[in-house]
């Protein structure tokens, strides 16, 4: 069984974000990069499937060459090989999905796992687009996965409940946090991962028409929501404080 996992290198969201001088990107100097947390669950699920049914796990990513480190961490968890596609910086999710679909077509995986979204652009659509482009059945935000051989059964989260779905293979699934606990890589696997193959190719090699990839949307500005906690202690009688709080939460913060 061939299992592909789509992963993305993203900044750790615990980092301090600052807007760069162009006003529409973030300063990257002090950012720490990690594998997008939802993708870790995807890798874990893929490796669990491999351990159960045999086969190979290929980590696929689009990003700068530094993304190899992130692929490497997937290999350290137990994946077999990696594929990194570079030169896709200017793509929107739409173009990105086409690139991934083209690359995955040559790999012909039986199952594709991906995190439900990457916590950089939070686009939350690339895996579904890939599945559509490959004409694969797919399910998003799954919290349980079971392989029945020719088909898979998954629990898919909805607000306040879940669907249990059965999909024929090949299929694509996006993972939600509750599905598993990503394993802690062992030292021998970290060592082995250093020797595993990561194939690198550029978008150009996929032979996609540039107009098909052109981004149809663009970021005009980045703004930072409040960074520091307000630390505002409300004054007055108890009832006044409570009324003031509810007013603020409703009108100023809009969280009620």
């Amino acid at each position: 069984m061939k299992i592909a996992v789509l992963v993305k290198r993203v900044p750790d969201t615990a980092s301090v974000f600052k807007i760069a001088v162009d006003g529409k990107s973030v300063e990257t100097a002090n950012l720490k990069y990690v594998m997008s947390p939802y993708d870790e669950h995807a890798v874990e699920e893929a490796i669990k499937l491999k351990e159960k049914n045999g086969g190979e796990v290929i980590i696929v990513s689009v990003g700068p060459s530094e993304a190899k480190e992130i692929i490497r961490s997937g290999l350290a968890m137990g994946a077999d090989s990696g594929l990194l596609i570079t030169g896709a910086e200017a793509l929107s999710p739409r173009g990105l999905a086409k690139v991934l679909a083209a690359a995955l077509k040559t790999l012909a995986p039986d199952v594709i796992f991906a995190g439900k979204q990457a916590v950089d652009d939070d686009a939350a659509q690339v895996p579904e687009r890939v599945a559509e482009l490959l004409d694969m059945p797919h399910a998003s935000v799954i919290t349980r996965f079971e392989c029945l051989g020719a088909s898979v059964v998954v629990d898919r989260e909805i607000e306040g409940g879940q669907y249990t779905l059965e999909l024929p293979l090949p299929a694509l699934l996006t993972t939600q946090k509750g599905i598993n606990t990503p394993r802690y890589p062992t030292l021998p696997n970290i060592m082995k991962a250093k020797k595993k193959e990561i194939r690198e190719m550029s978008v150009g090699e996929l032979g996609l028409a540039s107009e098909a990839l052109a981004a149809g949307c663009t970021v005009e500005a980045f703004t930072l929501p409040r960074q520091e906690r307000l630390r505002k202690v409300l004054e007055g009688e108890s009832i006044q404080k409570v009324q003031e709080l509810v007013r603020i939460l409703r009108e100023t913060e809009k969280v009620l």
């Binding site: 949307c217 970021v219 930072l224």
Partner: peptide, 12 residues
């Protein structure tokens, strides 16, 4: 974006 750490204004 960035898990809510940044807000993006996007033009389609």
């Amino acid at each position: 974006v960035y898990a809510g750490k940044v807000l993006a204004e996007v033009r389609v």
